[in-house]
């Protein structure tokens, strides 16, 4: 049903910390790997061993440069790696435009899914998603997308501590966090509050659940420190070695 559910309390989603993401693509391949056998399996690849190889991926890693360095490479410019997957929006037009009800948002946790059994492959939802989070499976002729690992997060066959999205589990820099963004006291909500987590393209009004934590300003220690406390300057021509001559050191 493409009518949006009455917003529930629970809004599951991801928080991605752009300050520490190194762009390793682990979350991209782990996602591909898990989902290749998961709820939306398979995630086909076309011309996998030739020219024009492309496939269905639910998570893709971009990189950007922010700012321009000075002459000497100094300045506040940064390179930012940027993972992109479904943001499980609160106002997802990908759901409302769907003519069949294949695209839907779950009332109980806000996860946006595609019912591949009734999708007609009209692709309209992919046009309606500003974030490029919908992936068309040309082979089956249906739309697919990030499932928020719905077959992991509630899976009784997985140890409780590991009931997390595959991309979150794998991330070596812990740049990805999963939780209930509807609960202001959840760890993810607190992180968003503390770090000024951002919505992507807020101007479009999709109200993404996923948040991005912007790269931090330099840490305190990163600010220039005062010049080294130089010992009383020696007169020009003085032998600087002299200051150590009388130092006795124990072995």
């Amino acid at each position: 049903m493409t009518s949006l559910p009455i917003p529930g309390q629970k809004k599951l989603g991801l928080v991605i910390d752009l300050d520490v993401c190194v762009g390793c693509h682990a979350c991209a391949t782990a996602c591909k790997e898990w989902n290749s056998g998961g709820h939306s399996a398979p995630l086909p690849d076309f011309n996998p061993y030739g020219a024009d190889a492309y496939g269905v991926w639910f998570n893709r890693i971009h990189s950007f440069e922010e700012g321009t360095s000075g002459e000497d490479g100094g300045g506040d410019a940064r390179t930012v790696h940027f993972p992109r997957s479904c943001l499980h929006c609160e106002e997802p037009a990908c759901v409302t435009v769907c003519p069949t009800g294949a695209s839907y948002k779950r009332a109980e946790d806000g996860i946006v899914l595609v019912n591949a059994d009734i999708c007609i492959g009209c692709k309209l939802c992919s046009w309606a998603c500003p974030y490029g989070a919908r992936e068309f499976d040309e082979d089956e002729g249906v739309m697919k997308k990030c499932t928020l690992c719905i077959d992991r997060i509630y899976n009784d066959n997985i140890a409780e501590a590991e009931r997390l999205p595959a991309c979150v589990m794998v991330c070596p820099t812990s740049a990805r966090h999963f939780g209930d963004l509807g609960d202001p006291n959840s760890a993810v909500s607190e992180m968003v509050a503390a770090r000024g987590g951002k919505d992507l393209m807020p101007e479009l009004g999709y109200r993404p659940v996923n948040k991005y934590l912007p790269p931090r300003r330099q840490t305190t220690a990163a600010r220039p420190s005062p010049a080294p406390p130089v010992p009383p300057p020696l007169a020009a021509g003085d032998n600087k070695l002299l200051r150590w001559v009388d130092r006795l050191l124990s072995r």
């Binding site: 290749s36 399996a41 995630l43 086909p44 996998p48 082979d139």
Partner: peptide
Amino acid sequence: PDILRYGG
């Protein structure tokens, strides 16, 4: 293969 459907 022209199309890889691993896990399908």
